[in-house]
């Protein structure tokens, strides 16, 4: 098991380097000059050039990349072109804010999705199944942006029950009542898609497992429903964990749409801002961090699957 984990961690290194190269190349190929984007509109050419030198954008690209890579290895993600603040600090704050939403949405989405999908799979072909399928289909199909707006109009503007946007002011405790009230709308909006996807996956996996011969055999032996269910859960869980891991990754990535609709200062909000300001250091930092998260998350999922299913360890 240990050697498996070590091997997987080592695989992550070339992936991370590849991501930095890809991100760097893509961002420099995209239209829009980061220096022009932050200089004053009438700044004369020599001042813009001085700014370019100050940020190091005047050096050849391969050299810039190596410098960047060297700094990243040393843990320095650079400084935001737009604000002068350290990218690492900006990212840490934004990520903490997104994490709060992602955890909330994961709990809501996964519990609802597993419950819906489980019930539907267990009662396949019945009215309950159809109902659960419709609900999960809506979850997958409904546009986030629209749903967020509708929730705001209903819950904040018309009923005035919940705040329309933002986090509670900085003095409020992270999981205090005020913060939870601010979180509810974005969390519910964000949870809709994972609910749908998880429900569909669980339904399919449960339905499929129930039809397998060993389950038939267990039933034929007269095993109680609860005990059969335990066997089914054990068999279904590796597949479900893979889906949950991927979904959690997406949630952690933050949603540009949801965070913009709710003015929630997380990674999606920061990413949106960095794109419009051509803030390359921030963009590079966010994308690198998100990519590494996916790598890490896949690793955790693989290890969890291996722990649950001995067959996986042999591969």
């Amino acid at each position: 098991m240990l050697s498996y984990i070590v091997r997987r961690v080592l695989y992550a290194v070339p992936i991370a380097v590849g991501v930095t190269l890809l991100v760097f190349a893509l961002l420099h190929m995209a239209p829009g000059d980061p220096v022009n984007a932050v200089a004053g509109p009438d700044a004369p050419a020599d001042v813009v050039e001085a700014l370019r030198r100050a940020y190091g954008f005047d050096k050849p690209l391969p050299y810039q990349y190596l410098l960047y890579l060297g700094r990243v290895v040393g843990g320095d993600l650079g400084v935001s072109v737009a604000t002068g603040r350290a990218v690492a600090g900006e990212l840490a704050q934004a990520f903490a804010n997104t994490l709060v939403l992602a955890l909330g949405a994961a709990v809501v989405g996964f519990v609802a999705g597993i419950a819906l999908g489980g019930v539907a799979g267990w009662h396949k072909g019945t009215v309950v199944d159809h109902l659960a399928t419709v609900v999960s289909l809506i979850g997958v199909s409904v546009p986030h942006y629209w749903l967020g707006m509708v929730m705001v109009i209903l819950m904040a503007v018309e009923l005035n029950w919940l705040p329309a946007m933002g986090m509670a002011s900085g003095d409020a405790p992270l999981f205090g009542l005020e913060q939870v009230r601010h979180m509810l709308l974005p969390v519910l909006t964000m949870a809709v898609i994972p609910t749908g996807i998880v429900a569909r996956s669980v339904r399919a996996a449960v339905g499929e497992t129930l039809e397998r011969e060993f389950v038939q055999a267990l039933k034929a032996k007269g095993m109680r429903r609860g005990a059969v269910m335990r066997h089914v859960v054990r068999n279904v869980s590796p597949t479900i964990i893979a889906v949950l891991g991927l979904q959690f990754g997406y949630l952690l990535g933050g949603s540009i749409l949801i965070e913009t609709v709710f003015s929630w200062p997380g990674t999606g909000f920061l990413l949106n801002e960095a794109i419009f300001k051509r803030d390359l250091p921030v963009l590079q930092g966010i994308i690198l961090m998100l990519a590494l998260f996916f790598v890490l998350l896949n690793l955790v999922v693989d290890v969890a699957q291996a722990a649950l299913d001995p067959r996986m360890r042999r591969t």
Partner: peptide, 14 residues
């Protein structure tokens, strides 16, 4: 930055 968010925030008293 989102105009509808600003409007909703005003209408909901934020």
């Amino acid at each position: 930055p989102e105009a509808n968010t600003r409007t909703a925030a005003l209408l909901s008293g934020q």
